[in-house]
């Protein structure tokens, strides 16, 4: 998956309202980023990257970029 596809697929999966997110969008600025969204992110990453993130790891992420780093840049295709 490419990073920009990741941003759009994850946003769609979490049902975030605005659709024009970038890698720099801060999660906290998103309307609808709540505890269920955190569970959704964990489920999305588990399903797509076979990786179990913890809630405390997710507490530390700021924007989509930091989530990409947490998952590992090598897991993404070049743009």
């Amino acid at each position: 998956m490419k990073k920009n596809e990741f941003v759009s697929q994850l946003s769609e999966f979490c049902e975030f309202e605005n659709e024009n997110f970038t890698l720099e969008t801060l999660f906290k600025s998103i309307n609808g980023y709540d505890s269920l969204a955190v569970m959704s992110i964990i489920a999305f990453v588990d399903e797509n990257f076979k990786m179990s993130l913890t809630a405390s790891q997710l507490n530390k992420i700021t924007d989509f970029n930091s989530l990409v780093e947490l998952i590992g840049k090598d897991k993404f295709e070049d743009e």
Partner: peptide
């Protein structure tokens, strides 16, 4: 507990 937010725990 590791997979849910602290408030949920």
């Amino acid at each position: 507990f590791a997979s849910i937010p602290i408030e949920a725990k």
